[in-house]
Design a protein around this nucleic acid. Structure first.
Lengths: 114, 114
DNA sequence: CTAATATATTCATTTATAGGAATATAGTGC
DNA sequence: GCACTATATTCCTATAAATGAATATATTAG
């Protein structure tokens, strides 16, 4: 029950759904998502933690960067099912189309200077 | 997007998920659900409204009674999918097993005297 | 019409959630 | 070690959601 509710709650926020839809297109670091969503960095981190706790995303550290990607669903059957559905759900939604458009122009080399 | 979020939010509350699981077993009126969930009647009505708004349940008035049942999913593809999954999901959850046990002993003839 | 019953709505209060600002942590390069 | 950068955590505030009490609506019985 708790695992199911976690997935439902995780997907009850528009910014978190946007994160899922973005990750369907590419692996992203926090600052890239921040640029796409136009919200503060700590907010992005908090959303990602909720998504991770629900078994919807995983991350791999790469030096200073933390790369997030969609989970394979092995952590939660509910997450697995919803992630599958979200591959085709909301595809024609204008809110997402806009953000996905932006994605190609959001490159971490431009955002994170080293 | 809004329709999807409505379904996710509707299924983010344990009492509402319990209502869905109960309705898998039989059509119920408000006072029967109130007895099963042991919460106040206005709370049940409010939960039902949220579920109905999400396209998860429908109701038919029968005199003084309002009979609620699961929706067929035609109002929302998201609701349709989740209702399908919830037929087998959470079946072995002890919280639900308990309530479903109670169901056979909850009869509106005993609850609503006329 | 009035009385009684099942359900819905409103209101006030509490509790949870999202957001930003400031701060902390961790990794890199010197 | 220090400075710098990417991310995480804490704290505070504002907004949303859940709950119970009281009230309103609708239907039936008389």
């Amino acid at each position: 029950m708790k695992a199911f509710l976690k997935v439902m709650r995780a997907l009850s926020d528009p910014n978190r759904v946007k994160i899922i839809k973005m990750l369907q297109h590419k692996v992203m670091c926090v600052c890239e998502m921040q640029a796409a969503l136009q919200i503060a960095q700590p907010s992005v981190s908090k959303h990602l933690k909720i998504l991770e706790d629900a078994g919807l995303v995983i991350f791999h550290k790469d030096g200073m960067w933390v790369n997030y990607q969609l989970a394979d669903g092995s952590a939660s059957p509910y997450a697995a099912s919803l992630l599958g559905n979200l591959r085709h759900w909301l595809e024609d939604d204008s809110e997402f189309a806009e953000i996905v458009e932006k994605l190609s122009s959001i490159r971490r080399e431009d955002l994170c200077r080293r």
